[in-house]
Structure formats: structure tokens, C-alpha cells
Amino acid sequence: MADTLTPTTSARAVAPAADAAAPARSGTATLSRGARLRAGIRSLGSTGALGLVPFAAYILLFLALPTAIALFTGLVDGDGAFTWSNLAALGDPVVLNTFGNSLWISALTAVIGAVVGALFCYALIGAKPTGALRSVVDAASGVLAQFGGVMLAFAFVATIGIQGMVTVYLRDTFGVDIFADGVWLYEAPGLILPYIYFQVPLMIITFSPALESLKPQWAEATAMLGGSRLSYWRHVGLPVLAPSFAGCLLLLFANAFSSFATAAALTSQGSQIVPLQIRAALTSETVLGRENLAGALALGMIVVMTLVMALYSVLMRRAARWQR
């Protein structure tokens, strides 16, 4: 109902002032009606600048400050003096191994998630946007990608745990013991399946807008020039989608790399990935006999994440070319 509050006649009459209100042009103010309005809006603005303060203060206190503290503690010793020695911990074989685990698990699950997710997105092309299929897929993807965490750990214990449904079924029906070489579910490889389980839905969420940006005219043009469906995908579809796909792949990587809850709920011993090592460093003061290791690890994570996300934004800017 409130949608009918779109510009009424009186609003339209002053619409030119909307353009004039752009700050760049305010210098050329004349004493027209528009100018008076502009002055009015500006007086609104003088208190307006104050209006930005609460949010800015909030962001400083709860995002900037914690991040700064986290990174700072990586650079000081126990007495608060500056030191590089914590960062030397990043070269420790144990820590390197953990970063290695985090990187390969993130990369592997990102690639599998991206490919399977893209395939699913392809299957959704042409499905009615308001239809039941899209509604259910959107909601389910949202839940699994953003809500997962602890629940996923439970789900996979129930599925491929020692007494899990699939484990028992394979053992009793086919005589296949998936844990013949030891129980790997609670080790680093055990993270692969749960991670794929949240990566695919995230891919569906982030990649389907890119597929929707494929214009039907391109397919028509291809057909008009005698192209087949295959040549459409080879020469038009895939090249246009490539930057988006690579960007989403990076986002998936970042997502897995920073994920903590699933691993924390699944693995009870050891710190196979970086976030678990940060937990260990936070809860027991001395891991590897070093102070402030959590800060150093956090710094390492931020470096990786910043690289990945910077590349992501470059790719997304390139992808946006076709989404106009």
C-alpha cells in the first residue's frame, strides 16, 4: 500500500531540485524555489552529518577496533613491546602444516562446490523465478550456506559417523568399511564432505544472478547467425560467465578458509585448520611455547583473506561489464 507513496504531483513539481541537490552543483545556487529547497535539505544535512556518528562509532568499536587489536597482538610480546618474533611462529612447521591443510581443503571444496553449484544453476535456467522450485532452492541454499555450522557437523556424524546411516548401510549391505584405514571423519579429510555441503549452496546463491544476466538476445543473435546451443555456450555464454565463475570460486575459497563452527563441532582433538589453531592459542596461553600466537595466526588469515577478496572484487568489476 505504501508503495503508492511514489512521487505525487507536488513531489514531481520539485523533482528538478533532486538533481540540484547534488553537492557538486550547490555552488551555483540561485534564489529560485529549487535553491530554497536545497538550502532546506542542506540544513537537514548539518545535523545529518551528526546522524552518521552513531554508526561510525559502532563500526569503529566493534569492527575496526577488534580487528586492529587482533592484528596488533600479533606484533607485540607479552609486555606489550613491538616484536616480529610472533610472526616467526608462522614459519613453524606445525603452523605451516595447519595453513597448508586450511588452504588445500578450502581450494578443493571451493572447486568442487563451484562446479557442482554452477551445474545446478545451469539446471535452473528458464525455471520460473516465482515458481515453487526457485523458492525452495533459494531458501534451502540460504539455510545451508549461512546457517550450517554446528548442524552440519551433527548431520555428517549421523551420515558417515562410525554408526552413521550410510556407514552402516555400506558395511551391512556391501561389506564396505569406509573407515577401514582408520576413522577419518574427525581429521582434516573429514571436513571435505561437510564443507562441500555448504559450498554448493553458496555457489548457487552467488552464481545464479550472473546466469540471469545472460541476455536472451545473445542466444537469438547466435541462432540467427546459424549457431547451435553448443556454439552459443562456447563463444558467448562461457566467456561472459568466466569472470563471475572465477569470482564465485574465490568467494567459496574465502568462505571455507574462514569457516570455524563445523570444524570445531566435528573435531574434538588437535588443530587441523587455522581457525582451530587460533582457538587453541586463545584457550591455552602457550601453544608451541609462544605468546600472542592467536594474533599472529589472525594476521596470517587476514593476509590470505585480503588477497583473495581483492582479487574477487577485481573479477566482479570485470563481470559487472555484462550485467548492465
Binding site: 568499536l61 577488534p66 586463545l282
Partner: peptide
Amino acid sequence: TIPAIVIVVGLAPV
């Protein structure tokens, strides 16, 4: 970009 696990490291003092 900033993982929750990183924010937590700095949130404890806050």
C-alpha cells in the same frame, strides 16, 4: 573479508 574467528581475537578485550 574478516573472519569471525579473527574478530573474536580482538573482541575479548573489548
